[in-house]
Nucleic acid binder design. Structure first.
Length: 511
DNA sequence: AAAAAAC
């Protein structure tokens, strides 16, 4: 078995790897590092979580160790699709280039040009960028890419999804054709294939087994719900979300809650906050400073719930995420895989809930055929207020033979035992129903009103969280404390070093 | 149908 010390890496890099607690490279690292060190092009087919980032940062640091950067002429370039991923790559360089004199700059949008300009002017060895901001700098004449010796394209398939491929081609053409290219993609779509044929020369191809989406470390649970009306789905799902959080108690240490739309992200985050939960939103319409702050806060545990758009679905390496919620069923099946992959990392256990309504059926089918399993159905812990289980069942039976009259169906509901018709729905014309309701309320005031109010208020109180956790037996899954004693794994992909568990602030403080 | 990324 290879170890890092067999890989011809710079002794200083080896020392940094050792300090981070690693001895054995992951398959992608073992496959990509040797050819990269020989100066060959590399085509890596691998997803995040396989140790991909280190498979290019480690050889880059080693190769760039000799030589010095000239002003405005970076010696290497790493392109990433999102700002957060670019920042993550930059952190990786910080970790492993500690002993070296390499200078780096992070060029991402949403922050001022000033600092970035200064760094470029002074000369950098490593430039890490999102395509838009890089091209912007280039067009301002602040940047020359003719000195690029190594170019890395990370998450190419996502770049394709985001329409970045023309930009990537443009950037390729601004660099010298003698450069070394390291190219990473989770899939080889035809368009990706075309690009690699055009810009890579005789690459060493390393394919790492597709990450097991039904990984044993992730428990997937589907929670189905049929809203009374279609427009109530979102509101109902917010209730269900809170009910699950309460039910799972301490097991749900933290969670990423994915929504399909940015507006929904805002609504869900606001709603959780209103109910006393520690939650923050993250999506592309928010200020970059806030995005960074929120992600740091989630990483260091000061934020318990990260409500996110798909900006956070891929590649982000946040260890110790206990739960992922698909508040919305993702409409691209691939995204499901990426989203739930934010938990169950580094051999630890994770739970991924997906909330679905009948209108999601089509997307759900696509997901299930992609992951080649039927998602196990879990219990929906939330009951709509005023609707007993019994009545729910009755209503379902009733549904097929329902006749036209709304009034009739409503009065039926009222007749059912323990029913509570929502007051706003009772029209003045319906005086008989109203009177009946009032009479019933007088007869049994506590059994109807009290529990309902309490149930609604319960999650509001912070104390209730610990209260709920005492009864968190979790349907016999019996995992309790074994989250931290999961299967033993080695290498930079699965094993997570201590520093990753720290916030960026803390890491800076350490260096 | 929407998200991401440049000003």
């Amino acid at each position: 078995m290879t170890s890092f010390s067999d890989l011809n890496l710079d002794p200083k890099v080896l020392k940094a790897i050792e300090a981070a607690g690693y001895t054995t490279p992951t398959p992608i690292q073992a496959g990509a590092i040797p050819p990269a060190l020989e100066g060959r092009d590399v085509l890596g087919i691998a997803q995040t979580g396989t140790g991909k980032t280190a498979s290019f940062t480690l050889p880059m640091i080693t190769l760039l160790g000799k030589g010095r950067a000239r002003a405005r002429m970076p010696r290497s370039l790493v392109l990433a699709p999102t700002r957060e991923l670019a920042a993550q790559v930059a952190e990786n360089f910080d970790t492993y280039a500690k002993g070296s004199r390499l200078k780096k700059a992070l060029l991402i949008g949403g922050v001022s040009f000033k600092e970035q300009d200064m760094l470029i002017d002074r000369g950098v060895d490593v430039l890490i960028a999102t395509p838009g901001r890089l091209i912007d700098h280039f067009e301002r004449g602040k940047l020359l890419l003719t000195g690029v010796e190594i170019m890395v394209v990370d998450e190419a398939d996502r770049m394709l999804d985001m329409g970045f491929i023309p930009d990537i081609e443009r950037i390729f053409e601004m660099t010298p054709f003698t450069r070394q290219t390291l190219f990473f993609s989770a899939t080889m779509a035809p368009e990706i294939e075309r690009i690699t044929n055009k810009f890579l020369s005789n690459p060493e191809k390393i394919e790492v087994e597709r990450q097991n989406t039904t990984s044993q470390t992730i428990t997937q649970i589907l929670v189905e719900h049929t809203p009374k009306r279609r427009d109530m789905a979102a509101k109902d799902k917010r209730e269900i979300l809170r009910a699950i959080i309460e039910r799972d108690g301490d097991d749900c240490r933290n969670a990423i809650i994915f929504c399909n739309r940015k507006t929904e992200v805002d609504v869900v985050a606001k709603s959780l906050k209103k109910h006393g939960y520690n939650a923050e939103p993250i999506h592309g319409d928010l200020e970059q400073s806030q995005r960074t702050r929120t992600l740091d806060g989630f990483r260091d545990g000061s934020i318990r719930f990260l409500v996110a758009s798909d900006v956070a679905a891929r590649g982000l390496d946040i260890p110790n995420v206990s739960h992922v919620f698909n508040f919305d069923v993702p409409s691209h099946a691939e995204d499901y895989v990426h989203r739930i992959g934010r938990t169950g990392r580094a051999g630890k256990l994770g739970t991924a809930y997906t909330l679905s309504t009948p209108s999601d059926a089509k997307y759900l089918d696509a997901i299930q055929s992609l992951v080649k399993t039927e998602l196990p159905r879990g219990e929906n812990p939330w009951t709509p207020p005023g609707v007993s289980k019994r009545e729910e069942a009755a209503a379902e039976e009733e549904a097929p033979k329902r006749t036209s009259s709304r009034t009739r169906s409503r009065s039926k509901k009222v007749d059912a035992p323990a029913a509570e018709t929502p007051q706003p729905e009772v029209k003045e014309a319906d005086t008989r129903t109203k009177a009946r309701n009032e009479a019933r309320r007088e007869q049994k005031p506590d059994t109807r009103n009290e529990p309902r109010t309490e149930a609604r208020n319960q999650p509001r109180q912070q104390e209730d969280r610990s209260g709920a956790s005492s009864s968190r037996s979790r349907g016999g899954r019996g995992r309790g404390g074994d989250r931290d004693n999961g299967p033993r794994v080695v290498g930079l992909g699965d094993h997570v070093p201590g520093f990753i568990e720290m916030s960026f602030e803390e890491r800076r403080g350490n260096s």
